[in-house]
């Protein structure tokens, strides 16, 4: 640098510092473009709702009334719920708010719901939608048993759906969290995201594996989501995440979920909480109503009466 000129001399073109600056600017441009595209993709993903169910008038089910049976307020809860279900299905799907209420004081721990669910959905080993957790409380002579059936909670803020990398699981307008078996890649991320351990992984096993013959009942297709799912040849739902769906395929035909129907103690209630006359709406408003892991902020749609 000469003494007469106080300013810094420009480095000649092609010198290392110019080269470095150019490289840096190009890299910054590449990264800036990528970051912009990424932000746009993220915003788009957060704004878009997933799901392709029919809504509005297309979702209304006009089921025949139970003409041969008279249903009053003091009738069997199953009959009341059946009638209420018909009313709920006459509304568009986005106006239904399914809710399950489980009266733990009535539950006798018979596991009938668990087994009925396994049979209804033809669940393989390792997959269970509604186990009944049995806890022994206290010590002799002051001992009690507590039974907690644990279906999917169909949370209002489900932690399991936003984690799916391929948009294979979502919350329907009526509140049911569903899985599209055709789309699910079986990564297991949603299984880890559920604080209730309500999602399971179908690893393609059969109860009669290793016996002289695979029993035909294990090969019968499952009817979940109103479709026929054939597990033969590693077809879906083998390899997929599987969970309770409040027996959506039964609901659509005007039938209560299998666990509700099979409960011998009338301990499980199900219905549309948007209907103030519905039994579940009334039960869920009682002061002894509790939800599991409320502190997780998931807003479960299964209520326990304790």
């Amino acid at each position: 640098m000469s003494d007469s000129s106080p300013r810094v001399e420009e480095p000649p073109a092609g010198s290392p510092s110019v080269e470095n600056r150019r490289a840096f600017l190009k890299a910054a441009a590449l990264l800036g473009g990528a970051a912009t595209a990424g932000t746009a993709a993220l915003v788009d993903a957060k704004r878009t709702t997933i799901g392709n169910e029919p809504t509005g008038a297309a979702s209304v089910r006009d089921l025949p009334p139970l003409a041969s049976i008279s249903i009053e307020r003091r009738s069997d809860p199953l009959l009341c719920m059946q009638e209420a279900l018909r009313r709920a299905l006459a509304k568009p799907v986005e106006e239904r708010r399914w809710l399950m209420v489980i009266d733990t004081r009535k539950c006798v721990g018979c596991h009938a719901c668990t087994i009925a669910c396994v049979a209804e959905n033809r669940l393989p080993p390792g997959v269970v939608y509604r186990p009944v957790v049995t806890e022994e409380i206290g010590s002799f002579p002051n001992v009690a048993l507590r039974f907690t059936p644990r279906p999917c909670m169909h949370c209002d803020e489900p932690p399991c759906t936003p984690v799916c990398p391929v948009r294979a699981t979502w919350k329907r307008p009526d509140g049911i969290v569903v899985v599209d078996y055709y789309k699910c890649i079986g990564c297991g991320y949603c299984v880890t995201a559920c604080p209730y351990n309500a999602r399971t992984r179908d690893l393609g096993e059969h109860y009669t594996d290793g016996t002289p013959a695979l029993q035909p009942y294990e090969e019968r297709p499952s009817l979940e989501y109103g479709k026929l799912w054939d597990r033969r040849g590693h077809g879906s739902p083998v390899g997929n995440a599987r969970k309770c769906h409040f027996c959506l395929h039964r609901l659509e035909e005007g039938m209560l979920p299998e666990c509700v129907t099979s409960c011998i103690g009338r301990a499980t209630y199900f219905g549309d909480a948007a209907d103030p006359d519905n039994l579940v709406a009334e039960l869920a408003a009682r002061p002894n109503a509790r939800r599991l892991l409320e502190e997780k902020g998931t807003g479960p749609r299964v209520v326990y009466l304790v």
Partner: peptide, 26 residues
């Protein structure tokens, strides 16, 4: 090898959910 449906891995490219950390990873 850990995927339940190995043949559907392309779905992360064809229908990604960019809200998911896993999709971002891929």
């Amino acid at each position: 090898c850990d995927l339940g449906q190995m043949s559907r891995v392309h779905r992360i490219f064809t229908s990604p959910n960019f809200g998911s950390m896993m999709a971002w990873m891929v």
